[in-house]
Simulated assay, not measured.
Amino acid sequence: MIRVVLADDEAIVRVGVRAVLAAADDMLVVAEADNGRSAVDLVLRHRPDVAVLDIRMPGLTGLDAAAEIRRAGSGTATLILTTFAEDSYISRALGEGASGFVLKTGDPHELIAGVRAVAAGAAYLSPLVARRVVDHLSGGGPRLGAAERVSGLTAREREVLGLVGAGLSNGEIAKRIHVVEGTVKVYVSAILKRLDLRNRVQAAIVAYEAGLIPAET
């Protein structure tokens, strides 16, 4: 069961999001908050798998809450949920260590897919956000700087990075390259450290920029 803390300052939105998650038989909302500070406190108290955070909340924004949750080392993945798709919000959310970004205006299935993905250790961007990120950062093709950046990785590490960029979880990557999941975790940790990245979303962006995403994915 994926345990979720939900934070949004609008009660009607929380009701809607809770209903969407309740439709999935593998998710349970364990606590709700109407502001970012309470969200952080609830995450530290309940240690959920995922925190679904609205961006604009009083006291502490969802982006600030995501940053605090990451620094606290709770192990909770953060999924940003918002009506805003501006590049500045997307960039900051990724920079603060959020594991995913889903728009409230998107298909409810995107929310479910996003929660499952980040809970499994993968990165998730809703299709609209993914297009904007890739178009903005990749410029339609591999960037020389990114290619040089990953050149110091081993062939296996570049393969794993490409699969992270394709949105695969550690378990899925393990099956793809025929190793145990623990080995994939070691590879991912090494990649993040060597490329000075905070999370898998940032790793996915580098993979896109470097042209490492396998065509079949």
Rank of each mutant, 00 (worst) to 15 (best):
I2D: 03
R3F: 14
L6C: 13
L6T: 13
A7R: 06
E10T: 07
E10H: 10
L21Y: 02
D25C: 12
M27F: 06
M27H: 07
V29H: 13
E32Q: 14
E32T: 03
V43F: 10
L44F: 11
H46M: 11
D49V: 15
D49L: 05
D54K: 09
A67L: 11
A67F: 09
A67E: 12
E68M: 13
I69W: 09
R70M: 08
A72T: 10
S74W: 11
S74D: 14
G75D: 15
G75Y: 09
T78A: 13
I80M: 10
T82V: 11
A85G: 07
Y89G: 02
R92M: 15
A93W: 03
A98G: 05
V102S: 03
V102P: 01
V102Y: 02
P108T: 15
H109P: 05
H109Q: 12
V115K: 03
R116M: 06
R116V: 04
V118D: 00
A119T: 13
G121R: 10
G121V: 09
G121A: 14
G121Y: 05
G121C: 13
R131A: 08
V134C: 03
D135G: 06
S138Q: 13
V150Q: 00
S151G: 14
L153R: 01
L153Q: 04
L153K: 04
R158N: 06
V160W: 00
G165F: 00
G171S: 08
H178M: 03
V180Y: 07
E181H: 14
V188W: 00
D196P: 10
L197R: 00
V201L: 07
Q202D: 05
A204T: 04
G211C: 05
G211P: 12
L212I: 00
